[in-house]
Amino acid sequence: MSTTALRRQAPIVDFAPATPAAPAAAQPPGDSVHGLAIDVQGLRKSFGANPVLNGIDLHVAAGQFVAIVGRSGSGKSTLLRLLLGLEQPSAGTFSFADGAERIDNLRVARVMFQEPRLLPWASVIANVEVGLGADRKTAGSGDRALATLAAVELEEKRNAWPAVLSGGQKQRVSLARALVSRPRVLALDEPLGALDALTRISMQRLLERMWLDQGFTALLVTHDVAEAVTLADRVIVIDDGAIALDIRIELPRPRQRGSADVAALEGRILDKLFAGAESP
């Protein structure tokens, strides 16, 4: 079976867990939430005369998992890049907050891209250590890097060069690098877009597990509506530079891909996306 065939069937491919369920963590984790709340007000961005975001208002609760979907070129990546401080907004503001305390340091956020962006000349473990930033030289940081690598099940590859890893393994290293510093916000820009369907599903499980474990606030940009519905607490559709739909997904976790509830929500979101595509 070719990977394209698998990819097309992605929404219905699933491996039912042998044991009924992992610990039922239907609610976002922990009592003291590690993630930060995000408050976005009237955020606008234009490149030259080309407006991309026309006023985004959004409040993300601490530790929430938000999926952002939208047609290609609708400004999803731009929104993430603004929140990471990689672009300057044309107007509007955003802030991170821990309870009532405002956090200005953008270092609390980490990002994972569609490309793994590993340093080809550094070993797997050295790449994970890049995620520690200036803490790299402090005591115990090596153990932390190794533990994170173990969490993504790549401990035995720690001394390998990235060139010898598969696409999915590279993305796991990239995830370990993003999570080794225990970020309070994790932005993901189509991190699984380039993977085949099977690898993608196991990566989704891994991502969910890490999120339940660490309790960061997650912002996931994806083209795969089924992925958005299976992973997120909340799905946002961006169209024409504004939020066109904002729905909460209150299904219990772990969620079954292809179950009736998931399919119904998926249908609603797809309808919205197609409606946007047809009205110019």
């Binding site: 990471l84 990689l86 980490r110 891209f113 490309e115 962006r117 340093l119 000349w121 550094a122 930033g133």
Partner: peptide, 27 residues
């Protein structure tokens, strides 16, 4: 440039960025 951007996001100093990313990439 994506690697350079990655280095910036992960808080590399200009010297680290030069030594660990740019020079190695140019080698």
């Amino acid at each position: 440039p994506q690697l350079v951007e990655m280095g910036r996001i992960y808080g590399m100093t200009p010297w680290e960025l030069f030594w660990r990313v740019i020079l190695q990439g140019a080698l």
